[in-house]
């Protein structure tokens, strides 16, 4: 773990305040993110854990302003490296993407262009941000492939994405993302589609690169095991809200929210055979019509009448471990 100086203003890379994202269409509006607050320090890795539809990817994409502006309503403030994401011009935003913030995805096959070689794609990204000749850019591409530990990088430089295995494609995509030394890397389930043996390789690599380059990383995943491997801070998301936030030890070893506890209990890992797993009953709420109180109340076994009417505030249980629950564990 990076040892950081006591929190000074300059240490904070990302600041998100009361972020709300709503997708509006003619028929309905979907509240994907419903008020999120967090700060991320330089060199820190935050894992956002949530299930499908929890708004974790939506939150991250809004940090890069990737949502179609016409159909999206974004409220609140987002600040990355001193830039107000809502306020900067489209031209500035293009400069920020890649150079300050960059992103890796779950499916490298859809993120890489099948018609260009890996080397050309990395060089292209480099040249968008730095005015250097093609040869220098290709040299940089080679360095980047070496950085992400692609075996025999000279040969892989000239390979097309479909010629690479899943793990190598993911490394190539990481190389593209790192090509301009971003200070913030957004990772959207980059290891979910990989085999376990390759997933662990990529996780180890990402952690090593993050330390070497001093990057901050926001890593979205549904897998608690991945979070345990890579996170400094963990944010648990449910129905567009952070229901629990804290250091990885606090959240995973001493969860305060019933949802986090339920997730831990339902994740299959060396449970006693023959005994039913502690599944969370029910399904996540409909984001078009959220219940007025705690969104998790309908599935929560500890819910009381108050939970269904009153939205629990974020309370600090000590040491920056925050939880949105009226009756925390």
């Amino acid at each position: 773990m990076n040892v950081m100086a006591p929190a000074a203003a300059a240490d904070t890379l990302v600041r998100v305040q009361d972020l709300k994202v709503t997708f509006v269409s003619r028929e309905e509006s979907v509240s994907a993110v419903n008020g999120i607050n967090f700060e991320l320090k330089r060199g820190e890795v935050m894992c956002v854990i949530g299930e499908s539809g929890s708004g974790k990817s939506v939150m991250m994409r809004s940090l890069m302003r990737l949502h179609p502006p016409k159909r999206t309503r974004i409220e609140g403030a987002m600040e990355v490296d001193g830039y107000d994401i809502q306020g900067v011009s489209e031209k500035q935003m293009r400069q920020l993407r890649g150079a300050t913030v960059s992103m890796i995805f779950q499916e490298p096959m859809t993120a890489l262009d099948p018609l260009y070689t890996v080397g050309e794609q990395i060089a292209e990204t480099v040249r968008i941000h730095e005015n250097i000749p093609q040869e220098a850019a290709m040299k940089r591409a080679l360095e980047l492939l070496e950085l992400v530990r692609v075996p025999s990088p000279e040969r892989r430089l000239k390979a097309y994405p479909h010629e690479l295995s899943g793990g190598l494609r993911q490394r190539a995509m990481i190389a593209v993302a790192l090509s301009c030394n971003p200070s913030l890397l957004l990772a959207d389930e980059p290891t979910t589609a990989l085999d376990a043996s390759v997933q662990i390789q990529v996780l180890v690599l990402l952690r090593r690169l993050q330390k070497e380059l001093g990057m901050s990383v926001i890593f979205v995943t549904h897998d608690l095991g991945v979070a345990a491997q890579i996170a400094d801070k963990v944010a648990v998301m449910y129905a567009g809200r952070l229901v629990e936030y804290g250091s990885v030890q606090d959240v995973l070893l001493n969860p305060k929210h019933h949802y986090t506890k339920g997730m831990l209990a339902s994740t299959v890992a060396e449970q006693e055979k023959g005994r039913p797993l502690g599944a969370i009953p029910g399904t996540p709420p409909d984001l078009r019509a959220l219940p007025p109180g705690c969104s998790f109340a309908p599935r929560c076994r500890a819910a009381k009448a108050q939970c269904r009417t009153e939205l629990p505030p974020e309370t600090d249980t000590g040491g920056g471990h925050r939880v949105r629950c009226l009756f925390p564990l």
Binding site: A196, S197, I200, V204, A228, Q229, Q249, L264, T267
Partner: peptide, 14 residues
């Protein structure tokens, strides 16, 4: 290769 749920048991080498 199975990931542990304990953040104190991290893998350094794949």
């Amino acid at each position: 290769c199975q990931l542990s749920m304990d953040p104190n048991e991290r893998v350094d080498q794949a």
